[in-house]
Write a protein that binds this DNA or RNA. Structure first.
Lengths: 344, 344
DNA sequence: GCGATCTTTGTAAGCGCTTACATTCAAGGG
DNA sequence: CCCTTGAATGTAAGCGCTTACAAAGATCGC
C-alpha cells in the first residue's frame, strides 16, 4: 500500500518513502537506527524528510512499540517555588530518559477523576503528589498495572513512595528554638492538611517530649498568605500567646512575621518565627527567615527515574525513600545577626 | 479478529468486548457516545471495563482520530513565579478544552533541537516562549503546518504572537521615577537578552526623550540574583552613579536593593529602585518594591486557547495580541510609606 | 567460478482504537 | 400480514508507525 500523500494533511512515512524511492521500513530505520542503512540511501531519505517537512506522528510509534514514552505528573498547583522546583527536577530527569512529561494540575480541575483517567490513557506511568493517591481514579491506574509513585504522601504497601525527611528535622528545628530560651512554642498549620505537615508536627511534639514539656495543640489554619495575616492579627489581639512560632511553611511564616513587624512587634525579640521550604523571600526579609531546605528538585528527579525503572519491570520499593533536609539558620529564630544577608 | 486478552499485558478494547459479549465498536461507543447505546448493553460494557480495569491506549485513539489532543509548551525554565504562572494559565485552559499539555523546559536540555522535534511528534500545536522560535527545529514544526504561537517573543508575520505590554508601561514607570525628582536613572538589564527587555528599555528611552533628557546606556547584566549583587557591589565601589535604578525584573531589583541596604545605603532616599513582575517578595521587603504586574496567567490561557482554535482551522492573527500591564506603586520608588504592607 | 556469508532493503503483519456502512430486528402503518 | 422505518449492533477498513522475516545482491574463500 503506497498511499502517496503530499503536503496537505502532512507528510507521512509513506510520502517520505515515495519521495526517496525506498520502502517505509527504510525510512523508519533511518530514523531509529541510522547506522544500519547505507550512507547513500540514508542521505536520500534525510533529504526527503527535509524536503517534505516530515514530522512523524508519535501516536503511531507509541502504538507500534506499545509504550507511550511519557510520564504523567499530578501536582496540586504551581504557585510558590516548591512545586515548580519539583517539576523542574522531574522534567529534567524524564527528558534525560527520553520521556515526555504530561502535567496535570489538580486544584483547578472541576472533574479531577476524569482528568486523571484521561491522563492515564497517554502515559506509561504516573507520579502523584501527596494525598491525591486516594483518588479512586488513581487506584484504577494502579490496578491497570501502570506504575505509580507517590511524592510526599502517605506510605502504602502497594505504591512506591518518595518524600523528604520531616519528623527529625522538625524536631531539630524545634530544639534549636528551645536553645534560644523560648518556652511557649506554637505550631502554626494544620497537620491534617497533608502528611508532610503531620510529620512536622510530629517532630515538634517529639522535641517537646525530649525536654519533658507539653506541646501545645497545633493552630490549624490553611497555608496561604491571608491565613497567616489573619492569624497574626488574632495574635496581636491576644488570642494566642507565644514567644516562638514554628510554622508549617515559609508562606505562613513570612506573612505572619511581616504583619507582626508592621504592627510594631520585634522578630525575633518579642517572638521568634521559623518556617519550612526556604523560598526565595526567606533570604530577603529582615531578619532573614530560619527555615528548612528540602531537596525538592531531587525529589522530582528521583520520582521520574523510578517511574522509568518501574515501567521497565523493576520491583516496587516497599519502604519509602526519604531524602535528607537541611536546617537553614538565619536570624528570625533568635540567632545573632551578621551584617550581610545569608545567601544560599 | 477477537484477540482475547486478559490482564497480563493490560486489557484492550477487545478483551472488554469479549467479556461483555459485544463487538469492539460497541465498547468504543460506550466510551465516546454513551447515549447511542442501549442502557442494558451500556451497563454490561461498563461492568466489563470495571472488572478488567480497562484503561484505553490513548495513542490508538490519537492515531484513529488523527489528533493528538495535546498542546506542547516550551519554556526556558521554571524558577521564579513568572513561568510557573504562565504554565498554570496554559494548563488550566488546555484542560478546559480537553487537551493534555506536554511541557519542555529548554534551559536544561543539552540538545534542544532534538527535544523540540521529539515534542512536535506528540502534539497538535506548540507554544514557545521568547526567542526560542528562532530554533530551526521550531521552524520545521511551522513548515509542517502545525500551529505555533510565540509568547513574549518578537512578532513575525508568519507566527501568531502574544505578549504583555512593555514599552508604554516602562515609559510610565520611568516617568513616575522622574516625578520623584530623580535625574540620573540607570536601566539595569540586558535589552539583547530578550525581546521583552528590549521593549522595556525602549520605554525607558522614550520617557527620557519626552523630557528631553539623554537616556544612559543600559547596564548589560544577566538576570540572576548574583548578577544583581555583583552590580550593587560595583555601584558601592563608585563604578556606577545613579539616584534611581530601573531594573529589568524584580529578581535583579531585589538583590540590588538588599545589597545596597545591607551596605548602609537607604532605599529610596539615596537611590530609588524599581523592578518588573511583582513577585511575591516584592511586597515583603521593606520598602515594598515598586514594580509592574503582568497578566501572566492570562498570557498562558490565551496561548492555549489560540492553539486550540488554530488547530481547528482558525487563521493566524497577523498582529500580535498585547495584554495590558499594571503599575504597582509601593515605596522603593520614593512614594511615601504607609504603615502597612501593600498586599496584592 | 560457485556456494556460503554478510549487508542492505523490502514485505507484510500487527499495535488498539474510530467510524462509515451494513445488518438485524422490533415496531408501526396501510 | 407485509413493507417501511428506525434503533441497536456488528463488520471491516483504515490511522502511521515498527520490526520479524524474506529476498536480493555483494563479497569472499577455495
Amino acid at each position: 500500500m503506497t498511499t502517496a500523500r503530499q503536503q496537505g494533511p502532512g507528510a507521512t512515512i509513506y510520502s517520505v518513502a515515495d519521495y526517496a524511492g525506498v520502502s517505509i521500513a527504510t525510512v523508519s530505520r533511518v530514523i531509529q537506527r541510522p547506522e544500519v542503512v547505507s550512507p547513500s540511501t540514508r542521505q536520500r531519505v534525510l533529504d526527503a524528510i527535509e524536503a517534505l517537512n516530515y514530522v512523524p506522528v508519535g501516536a503511531a510509534r507509541s502504538l507500534a512499540v506499545r509504550h507511550h514514552e511519557a510520564h504523567g505528573l499530578v501536582l496540586p498547583e504551581l504557585s510558590g517555588p516548591y512545586y515548580a522546583e519539583l517539576l523542574m527536577g522531574f522534567e529534567a530527569r524524564a527528558a534525560e530518559l527520553g520521556q515526555s512529561v504530561i502535567l496535570l494540575l489538580a486544584d483547578t480541575k472541576s472533574d479531577l477523576p476524569r482528568a486523571v483517567r484521561q491522563l492515564a490513557t497517554r502515559v506509561d506511568a504516573l507520579a502523584v503528589f501527596g494525598r491525591t493517591v486516594d483518588e479512586p481514579s488513581v487506584q484504577r491506574v494502579l490496578h491497570a498495572r501502570k506504575p505509580v509513585v507517590v511524592i510526599a504522601g502517605e506510605c502504602r504497601a502497594d505504591v512506591e513512595s518518595i518524600a523528604a525527611e520531616n519528623t527529625s528535622s522538625a524536631a531539630q528545628l524545634t530544639e534549636h528554638v528551645f536553645t534560644h530560651g523560648r518556652r511557649r512554642l506554637l505550631f502554626v498549620g494544620d497537620p491534617d492538611a497533608a502528611p508532610d505537615i503531620a510529620s512536622r508536627y510530629g517532630g515538634f511534639v517529639q522535641a517537646h517530649r525530649a525536654r519533658r514539656r507539653k506541646p501545645a495543640d497545633p493552630v490549624r489554619i490553611a497555608f496561604r498568605e491571608n491565613d497567616g495575616t489573619a492569624f497574626a492579627d488574632r495574635m496581636l489581639a491576644g488570642e494566642h500567646v507565644a514567644d516562638a512560632l514554628v510554622c508549617a511553611n515559609d508562606e505562613l511564616a513570612l506573612s505572619i512575621m511581616t504583619r507582626l513587624q508592621d504592627a510594631g512587634r520585634s522578630v525575633p525579640d518579642d517572638v521568634a518565627v521559623v518556617g519550612w521550604d526556604d523560598v526565595m523571600t526567606a533570604r530577603y526579609v529582615r531578619p532573614g527567615l530560619t527555615t528548612v531546605r528540602q531537596p525538592v528538585g531531587e525529589l522530582g528527579r528521583l520520582a521520574s527515574e523510578r517511574l522509568y525503572e518501574l515501567v521497565r519491570g523493576a520491583t516496587v520499593n516497599a519502604t519509602p525513600q526519604v531524602l535528607p533536609t537541611r536546617l537553614v539558620l538565619r536570624h528570625s529564630c533568635g540567632c545573632p545577626p551578621a551584617g550581610i544577608s545569608t545567601l544560599p
